[in-house]
């Protein structure tokens, strides 16, 4: 008898296969999403080009290096469209319709279910464009392709994805109390737009805000520096620490929220 595959991996496979099957009924979305990604990217490139029109460096970042940051941003935005947004926006309706009950009665971690149940293929263009831009710009900027360097990059990208996820999850979980909290996550998405450009391109005040209050710096700038091979050990460690803390906080908060949850109908 073959080893039973891990329940979580197998569930994840089924989750995403079924959401793809359901999404593919609406093919027009794909074209629209592609246009949106291209439009967004073009807009960001245009702004960057304007900024670089006056000087060849911005806050110590060359054009190619700044493109790496933009690539990381695009990648994270793709992740948001593919996984975060389609899943976390549903917590509200789960609470309103009482279908959270079904989730809570499954013998699988409820935060896992809530966070991974859906996968939207419409985030794929962003993921591909982001990855492509990173590879191309990093190559232009002369990044190294050593295994240890690539591993560190992957680790810090994962850590920024975890930070982003945890922030979304914390805000979305508030809907256990405040059903209309969904707007707050939209605000978060717009704040993260600031991560398109290197943090050092911003005035000192904003820079502090983006590092200490909103971890925008950890989301895009730190992994971009890792890609360019110039991240300091302290920043790398700080990023991992913030990711671990944010994930831990999101898990704690979910358990806390569930204790308050008594479903929509009594």
């Amino acid at each position: 008898m073959p080893m039973p595959r891990n329940r979580y991996w197998r569930s994840l496979g089924r989750f995403w296969a079924t959401s793809l099957a359901a999404e593919l009924e609406y093919q027009a979305n794909m074209a629209i999403e592609l246009l949106a990604v291209v439009g967004n990217l073009a807009g960001s490139l245009f702004v960057l080009a304007l900024l670089y029109g006056r000087s060849s460096r911005l806050g110590g970042w060359s054009w190619d290096e700044a493109l790496v940051v933009l690539g990381v941003y695009t990648l994270l935005d793709g992740l948001t469209s593919a996984v975060l947004q389609p899943n976390l926006s549903k917590i509200v309706s789960h609470v309103q319709n009482g279908t959270l009950d079904f989730v809570l009665l499954k013998p699988i971690d409820s935060q896992f279910w809530i966070s991974t149940r859906s996968f939207s293929p419409w985030g794929l263009p962003g993921l591909v464009a982001g990855a492509g831009l990173i590879l191309w710009a990093a190559n232009q900027a002369g990044a190294s392709w050593q295994a240890s360097h690539v591993a560190l990059t992957a680790l810090l990208l994962a850590s920024s994805a975890v930070i982003l996820y945890s922030l979304w999850f914390l805000l979305a979980a508030l809907s256990i109390w405040f059903v209309k909290v969904w707007n707050a996550t939209e605000v978060l998405r717009y704040v993260l737009v600031a991560g398109r450009y290197p943090v050092s391109a911003y005035p000192v005040g904003l820079r502090t805000l983006f590092t200490l209050v909103l971890p925008v710096a950890f989301l895009t700038t730190v992994p971009a520096e890792a890609i360019l091979g110039r991240v300091s050990a302290s920043w790398a460690l700080a990023s991992l620490g913030v990711a671990a803390a944010a994930l831990g906080l999101s898990r704690w908060f979910w358990q806390y929220a569930l204790r308050y949850y008594t479903s929509a109908s009594s």
Binding site: R10, R14, F15, T18, K106, I108
Partner: peptide
């Protein structure tokens, strides 16, 4: 059937 397959995975039924 698709929902059943999801449940089978979640409940660890081969």
């Amino acid at each position: 059937l698709d929902s059943f397959r999801v449940n089978a995975a979640v409940y660890g039924i081969d």
